[in-house]
Structure formats: C-alpha cells, structure tokens
Design a protein around this nucleic acid. Structure first.
Length: 568
RNA sequence: CGGGCUGUAGCGCAGCUUGGUAGCGCACCUGCUUUGGGAGCAGGGGGUCGCCAGUUCAAAUCUGGCCAGCCCGACCA
C-alpha cells in the first residue's frame, strides 16, 4: 500500500471524550471512528488487524476440529422464549418487529440458534461436534464505554460443542482451554485463565481469560505463589479463625444515638470493631425480600449472592421497604429474632459469638449476639468480596487483586439448552438423551483493544507483528527520483517476499512521517533518505524496542524479511 | 435508571454573563521557499451554531421541550 493513497486520517490531539488509552490511541491512530454510543466503524487499519486476529482464531479452532458456520443475526423471539432467556436477557436484547408484527430480536449470543440446528443430530455416532462462527453480536448495554472495550455491536467468535456425556464435554472444554491459550499467546496477549461466575449463561464450569489492565472492568484475585486465580465475583480467601469470648447469655440492647455506619459503631464507646459486627443488608430477589449477613468489615459481592440464590431480578431494597420489613432504617438493622424472612449469611460469620449488630430500632444495637444461637440463618454461602493481601484459599500466601479485561470465556453448559430446545440423540442402547453442550466466546474488537492497552508507549501503539496492520513501513525522506526509486525497490521486494508493507510516499516532512509511523504502531520501519543512500545504507527501526540500526541497502530486505517471519 | 457535564468547520476550542452580519489553532486547497523528528510566508475554501418551538425589529447568545454524547454510580456473558 502507498500511504499517499491510503485512508489513514490520524489526529494530532486525543479525542476529548476518550478515557481509556486504547480508545484514545485507536481514534488518534485512525483505526476507529464512533458512529453512536457503543457503535464504531472500523477503518482500514483496524480491519486489517482484526482480520489477523480472526485468522489466528480460525486456525486454532480448525486445529481442534472446529467447523465454521455463519448463523443469522435476526432471530425469532420465539426461540428465545422457548429457552427461557427472553426474560432473562431483558433490556440488553435489541428487539424489533417485522412488517407482519412478528417479534424479532438481534442475536446477543447464539446458544439457541446453534442448538436449533443441533436438533438434526440424531445419533451418538455423530458426536462429538465442534461448531463455531465469527459474527456480529448485539447487546444494548446500559452504558457502553472505553472505546472498543464495551460496545453494543461487536464481533465474537462463538463456538459450541456437542457431546454424548459429561466426559465428552470435559474433553471439548479442555480442548478449547488449550486452543484459547494458544490464541491469546499468538495475538500477543498475556491472558490468564481464572475461575468465573457463569452468570446468565447457566452451566457449571466457567473460565475467563483475563488480560491485566486498569481499563478493564473486571477484578481478578490472583495468587503469585500458587497461581490460584479467580474473578472476584467468585474468588475466596481464607478467613483467619476468630477467637471470640463466650459473651452473654442473651443479646443485650444498648443505646447508640446517631450511630448509622460500621465505622460509627467501631469508634462508639461501648461499640465493637468492624470484624466483631454483623452487617445486615436487605435485598429483593425476584420479588422476595431477604436478609444478607456479613461481617461488618466485609463487602458484599453481589454476583455471588445472585449465583447463590439464582435470582434473576435483583436489587437492594428501597428505604421504605426496609422500614416496613424491620421497623428501622439502614444503619440500625439486625437479624436477631427475625423470622419469616430468608436469611443468607456469609461463611465468615459461622460460629461467631459475642457479636454486635443493629437492634431494628433506630439508635439502638445489640451486643452479645451468638450468630448460630440467636439468628435463624437459612443458608450459608461465600458472599463477601475478597481484598488484596488476604491469604490465598489454596496456599495461604497473600493474594493480588487487579483490574482485567475479559478477552475470552468458556463454559460447560451441560444439557440446559439441549433439553429446552429438544437436541436429543440416541445412545448405544437406543435411548434418547440430551446432548451435553459447551459454549466458548472471544470478542475480536475487545481483543484488539486489549492488545493496544498492553502494547503502547507515549508515542503510540506498538503492535506485535502477528496482529499489526502492516508489518513494515518504508519511510521515504525525500521524494526525489533517486531516493524514491531506491525506496520503491525495497518496497517491491518486501511485497514479493510476502511481507505486508506500506510505503510512506506522502509529501510530508520527515517528522510527520516518523510520528505517524510510531502512532499507528508498525513494528518495523525502514528509513530511506539521500544522506544514507550516498553511503549505500538505510536505517531499520524496531518499534517495540525503539532500536535503530544501519544496514546496507543490499542487505536490508533479507534481514527484515527474516525478522518479520520469525516474529509472526 | 440516579448524579455531574458537554453539543459552535474534519479535530481541539473561544464567543453565550450584557441579543445586533460566527471566530481562533491544527487540518484542507493554491503558490513560493524549506526538507533526517509534527516547517515558514502569502493567498484561499469550508459552519442547518444538536433539533423543535417561543420571546424579540433581531437569537449561537434569553425561555421551554426534545435529541445526542461523555464521566461517576447503578447495571452488565
């Protein structure tokens, strides 16, 4: 490609509405333009990089026996109703009506649609199958943000596996796990697999592939010692065993005027430290009110509560609801002697005695509470959000917690969809059985953005060769016959060697060309100018390291070809 | 959905308080000079001032409504 003919509208300034580094750089470096909230146009440079990511994914999927499909984006709402997910997806699903007033939705994932075709599988002899597609997904996110990291229309590689039993599903899952590791490695992402919540997908096993970045929206708990890693939506740590005094025979009410928070009570004369308090939260789960109990200094991880209860509609109770239920306002709540309400308690409260909690009367608390004696706990579960520095659940060493981008997610679905949509096969005994399914996703544009988040400097993007829009830029410093002729020669040779090359033949000053090349992040730059040419030499600059070396014009093509091929 | 903010040329912004023919920088076009890290001079092109209504002799500016976008939170495969 000749830069003078290419559409590469780089910008000198950061767009004001961008926060994330990848967002700023992808806009400035002429990869993307926003069309509306959460919807972006991919300009030619981004399209080229995305095509390479796509190719890598296809190669690795094909390598584990995947067969590529193309399913529609328009789905009849009926299929989603049948699986029960029309309700579950709620407003996140784009819905429209066709001219016959038929209800239609835009696909946000494709379990239902793949399963519909999978009903044509009839015998265990046809299994296992690995099916995939690389296609648009639509999700009406309440709040799109951070450029390509969280959008409403995007491309996903989604694959689905079909097996006769759990063992087959385990094998399919493991094959994907291995393929995903190879994919992210080839893309240039240091993605770590973490235990995750299955959320609205249902199913059992769930692993997310996470790339550490402050722009990421997830938090990962990771143990540097034993490599335990989990999304905080699921992570656990060890809680040091508490040594409580036996305390009182009965809880004792005492006045706490003005005390409304855990901290208030901790500093109140006659109060209790945070780890000696019981925090009482009120939630409404599918219309049912429930009390959620945690240690005073622990925070609720809402996803854990949702996973534990299976609730679809889920929110903290409103102040009026709390008052009506317990007779006091938030800040004075407790679960002692409360009956007829579901009470879920965090396991860190198990066996604790002589605790302090609200008395369900404003300005009063109870001390001497023995959790299991005084509170009718309905169920125990891990509900708290872990914090950095807590002892690893596996080995006891302090864990890290860091922000991360979810670049891939793999699930074991089991028979949820095959049962609801009737994907059955006959086994060896002629008995009809639901197919065991798995579901596996990778967001292409999000991966593109994740590469930028992890491969940039103050000058711009520094693409890994494998996903760079061009592998080499030939920067022509002067457009006279001799210089341009030499540069064209190098360009032609690189092209014939199969190297993706762009020649910067624009009538611009050298500084502009250098800056643009560094901004868009081409891994290798060959600089050709009259000064070097007089000595028969050119310069080769490596974007990732910033190193510049001088080479003879005669040798440069072979040397660069070798490097590019080694780095692909 | 709650809170905060913003819509004026391709990009970044001023003008709005106090109504009176729409400006600046970059980018773009022409010419000359320049040419190894975002050049200089001269000339030039480009705007339904987010949309609709209202007030007024007159609205980018005042009033009302609507729309869009961003940030924080809620939410979220």
């Amino acid at each position: 490609m000749r830069w003078s003919k290419a559409f590469i509208p780089t910008l000198r300034d950061d767009p004001t509405d961008a926060e994330a580094v990848s967002h700023k750089l992808l806009v400035r470096a002429a990869f993307i333009r926003q069309l509306m909230a959460g919807v972006y146009t991919l300009l030619p440079l981004a399209y080229r990089s995305r095509r390479k990511i796509r190719r890598i994914i296809e190669e690795e999927m094909d390598a584990i026996g995947g067969q590529e499909f193309l399913f529609p984006s328009l789905h009849p709402a009926e299929i989603w109703r049948k699986s029960g997910r029309l309700e579950i997806m709620g407003d996140e699903m784009f819905r429209l009506f066709d001219r016959k007033s038929g209800e239609v939705v835009l696909g946000m994932t494709h379990e239902e649609i793949f399963t519909t075709i999978a009903t044509e599988l009839t015998s265990y002899k046809q299994l296992p199958q690995i099916w995939y597609q690389i296609h648009s997904k639509f999700r009406d996110e309440p709040r799109p943000k951070s450029g390509l990291l969280r959008v409403r229309e995007f491309t996903m590689k989604d694959s689905y596996t079909f097996d006769i039993d759990q063992e087959g599903l385990d094998r399919a899952f493991d094959a994907h796990y291995a393929a995903y590791k190879r994919i992210f490695e080839r893309i240039g992402l240091d993605a770590i697999p973490v235990e995750a919540s299955s959320g609205a997908m249902g199913g059992s096993g769930s692993v997310e592939f996470m790339v550490g970045s402050s722009a990421g929206e997830d938090l990962v708990a990771h143990c540097p010692n034993c490599d335990y890693a989990a999304n905080v939506e699921r992570a656990d740590t060890r809680v040091p065993a508490a040594v409580d005094e036996q305390g009182l025979e009965h809880p004792e009410k005492f006045a706490t005027p003005g005390v409304r928070t855990i901290d208030d009570l901790a500093s109140f004369d006659g109060g209790a430290a945070g780890d000696r308090q019981i925090k009482t939260l009120v939630y409404v789960l599918d219309g049912e009110t429930a009390l959620v109990l945690l240690r005073g200094d622990h925070a609720l991880q809402e996803q854990k509560l949702q996973d534990e209860t299976g609730a679809i509609e889920f929110r903290p109770a409103h102040p009026e609801e709390i008052k009506a239920l317990l007779g006091a306002d938030a800040g004075s709540l407790g679960a002692v002697d409360v009956s007829d309400v579901t009470i879920i308690a965090d396991t860190a409260l198990r066996g604790r005695t002589n605790m302090t909690t609200g008395a369900n009367e404003n300005d009063f608390h109870l001390r001497g509470v023995n959790v299991e004696r005084d509170i009718q706990v309905g169920s125990w579960a891990s509900l708290r959000e872990v914090k950095a520095g807590e002892p690893c659940i596996a080995c006891g060493e302090p864990i890290d917690v860091f922000g991360a981008i979810e670049c891939g997610h793999i699930f074991k679905l089991g028979t949820k969809y095959s049962e609801s949509l009737g994907a059955m096969v006959l086994d060896q005994n002629g008995k009809s059985r639901p197919i065991y399914m798995g579901s596996y996703g990778i967001g292409l544009e999000r991966n593109l953005a994740a590469v930028v988040e992890t491969h940039h400097d103050e000058k711009g993007i520094a693409w890994p060769v494998a996903v760079a829009p061009y592998e080499v830029v030939v920067t022509v410093l002067k457009l006279d016959e001799e210089t341009l002729g030499a540069a064209d020669g190098v360009y032609e040779q690189l092209q014939s060697a199969g190297i993706e090359t762009i020649i910067d033949d624009r009538k611009e000053r050298p500084g502009v060309k250098f800056n643009d090349a560094e901004l868009i992040g081409v891994p290798y730059r060959i600089t050709i100018g009259p000064r070097g040419l007089a000595d028969g030499v050119v310069e080769v600059n490596t974007r990732g390291t910033g190193d510049t070396e001088t080479m003879s014009l005669a040798d440069v093509v072979a040397a660069v070809v070798e490097r590019v091929e080694a780095a692909r």
